[in-house]
Write a protein that binds this DNA or RNA. Structure first.
Lengths: 196, 196
DNA sequence: GTCTATATCTTGATAGAC
DNA sequence: GTCTATCAAGATATAGAC
């Protein structure tokens, strides 16, 4: 049963999958269309902005989806540091389930185009900011000091751990990052002792 | 005064610069050779393995250089957590000096090819492992518990912060990561208190 | 070791029929 | 809304003169 708009969604899904596996530049329109079982005519009908528009919509759609995931994972009354560590443990499993394809569809595109494509760079920046805000809202509600700083560091840690995990085809970096992320949260929860 | 081997080095330098700015796939041999003021003949004379060999040598050379930088930065008798934070502060300045080009030539290539080019993926993995070992050696010598785990988390945090910083064209993520990295080191230095 | 010319293929994008 | 055919420009890589 086909509904109107099906083709557009198929193209977007195929692009998301291929971008995360092969990167943005290395993925051609032809391959996207073959995977989506669509044609050039349909692609440029729905995405007149071409490949750049496709990349931008992939970033924003994935960004919204992951923002929802953050809201889902980071809640409840437990220790926020423990909640954070558990999210990393779950992320390690996701990495494994994907056979070390990029768990973050935004990261690879962001790395590739940050220096060359301003529209895509900006889309990635906005998505990262939205994740930081969502996570900071959670930390703030749990009484963590400097919630935005903490959230930024936790997201950076997760993205970096994904990168090392993909390169080494191992979940170890993400699992190693779990207690580290908890330590970051605990440090912000406690007193800001600097001198010793 | 030209010395033998000059051309080879020029090609390698140009490739390193362009890969970090534009990514591996988006950079063409033609542009590399134009930048290096070299020709196809020279390129395939020195790099018979073509673009893949060029990518691999860029990764390994940059990896060795940065391993030296780690050894240089992480030493001395000061508080290792403070030393770590200072390294991040310095990295933020580097990011700014590069006008938000990738401070890590390995990261972009690793993200792009981890799923498609096994030779390059492995080269990146080995480089990341060498950095982790170098950093772990420092933490171990300073009495930090689980030095490898700590080192992995710190490197992941740095790489992730670079990624966010490039996307947002801001040093804030790297500066936010500085105290977080210190917290990770401090947590490993102190007693493993979990319950409270 | 360096050069030019070229072979072969793929890229993103468009035109126009239906 | 979908299709095919095609364009112009790019890609990596090679051949062979010098």
């Amino acid at each position: 049963m086909r509904t109107t708009g099906d083709t557009r969604a198929r193209i977007l899904t195929a692009a998301t999958e291929l971008f995360r596996r092969q990167g943005y530049t290395a993925t051609g329109m032809k391959q996207i269309l073959a995977t989506a079982e669509a044609t050039y005519g349909s692609a440029y009908h729905f995405f007149p902005g071409g490949k750049t528009q496709l990349g931008e919509e992939v970033i924003r759609a994935s960004g919204a989806a992951y923002q929802g995931l953050i809201a889902e994972l980071f809640q409840g009354e437990g220790d926020p540091a423990e909640t954070t560590a558990q999210a990393f443990t779950g992320a390690a499993q996701t990495l494994l389930d994907l056979d070390f394809a990029d768990p973050c569809p935004v990261a690879t595109i962001a790395m590739e185009v940050s220096g060359t494509n301003e529209a895509l760079r900006l889309a990635g920046a906005e998505v990262f900011a939205s994740w930081t805000e969502a996570l900071a809202a959670f930390y703030g509600s749990r009484g963590i000091a400097e919630p935005r700083t903490t959230a930024t560091a936790v997201i950076a840690l997760l993205e970096g751990a994904f990168m090392l995990g993909r390169a080494s085809r191992s979940t170890a970096p993400v699992l190693d990052a779990a207690p580290a992320a908890a330590a970051v949260v605990r440090a912000a929860a406690g007193p800001p002792s600097v001198g010793g």
